[in-house]
Design a protein around this nucleic acid. Structure first.
Lengths: 207, 207
DNA sequence: GTTCGATCTGAATGCATGTTCAGGATACTG
DNA sequence: CAGTATCCTGAACATGCATTCAGATCGAAC
């Protein structure tokens, strides 16, 4: 506890650097394509150190997963609390396609997570947790809007599932650079859907 | 050309068996987890034969990809031509979540394809082609309905993209056995969205 | 300054797996 | 039946990669 903020090479920081490098490599090469040597190179350390800190490659990947989860939570909360009402908050959600934040909007990573969740239990629970939390945020926004008589969904729970799923589906096209899909169009299409689902005129949402 | 339909062990059939085995293994273990030995075992042959027919593991995976593509086309056409009008056809599309056909509805395979498309060009083009074709089918059904004054979408092109994307998004949850998602709910949610998008009362669609 | 534990390295190890290959089996042709 | 091309196998080979490990280095405590 002597000079924790001074020593730039404190062991803790080294570990953190490796964690970030792991995420960066996963982003680039996917879970399946990530090798210990990639992580070490990206972090500027030796392979041995990666294993020293995380025990195994699988350990590093799992650690990256939970780190990702944390980042996502921080990110969503931060973005949403900057908005004042449900309408503005909904618009911000639609702009998530632009993905400025560190974790949100990194759709390729999401795809990777989904597939890994098919075969790996840690990934499965991480995904479920992320999804649940994300849908809870969306649900909160909608409930808020309903309470203020701004939104009038036929079935709020159904609308939440559909709007969350639609975002995932649009995200796939964004992640794959589908011709005809762009961050702007992503946001537009999603807000139009929200307009339909919640019975709100589109210009109220996107104006 | 002597007795092609008699010899149960004709070389062509062996190749086909391996192709099907490859798809089966991908379905189970994913693209990344599929090994030559898995394919050989599943097909009941030697590793050597797999390589003899397809040159390499990558060759076998690519061949599986195009075979999958063909299956999908056949499947969609077959399912849709059994319906009489756009309304019934739309309902059938919603029931794709139940996935009776050999390729359609095998959502895990779809997830795998998406992620492979991130890193592999063959997979990328296969996915794009499949997606384009699927959306064209959906677009045809909607146009038909518009022509018959059954559907009244605000913007048909947008609705096509949204309904296709929504199906993908719902498919993710189905593939991951998300609690709260089931083939029945998949179909219900999607038809409700179609009802909103196309300005058709829900009971007209699902009745 | 010495000691000791934590941190870190680079080379060695061992295994999993894709690919090659030499030859055997099978089926068609004349 | 003999000859030949295709089909098929099992073992050998090569390589990429995670993991281990013997020690070097660093930092804190005294």
């Amino acid at each position: 506890m002597s000079t924790p903020e001074l020593g730039a090479k404190a062991p803790e920081e080294r570990r953190q650097r490796i964690l970030e490098a792991t995420i960066a490599v996963i982003r680039e090469r996917g879970f399946a394509g990530t090798r210990v040597s990639d992580i070490a190179e990206s972090a500027g350390t030796s392979q041995g150190l990666v294993l020293y800190h995380f025990g195994s490659l699988a350990g590093a990947l799992t650690a990256a997963l939970t780190s990702l989860e944390d980042d996502f939570y921080v990110d969503v909360d931060q973005q949403l609390e900057s908005a004042s009402g449900p309408i503005e908050r909904l618009r911000l959600m639609g702009e998530l396609g632009s993905g400025q934040g560190p974790a949100v909007g990194d759709w390729r990573l999401w795809l990777e997570l989904w597939v890994r969740a098919l075969h790996d239990d840690d990934a499965r629970t991480a995904r479920e947790s992320l999804d649940r939390r994300w849908r809870a945020s969306l649900s909160d926004v909608i409930s808020e809007g309903v309470a203020l008589h701004l939104f009038a969904p036929a079935d709020a729970a159904d609308s939440v599932v559909r709007l969350a799923s639609l975002m995932d589906g649009l995200a796939i096209q964004l992640a794959l650079d589908d011709p005809g899909m762009s961050p702007a169009r992503f946001g537009q299409l999603w807000l139009e859907a929200a307009s339909l689902e919640l019975g709100v005129p589109l210009d109220t949402l996107s104006g």
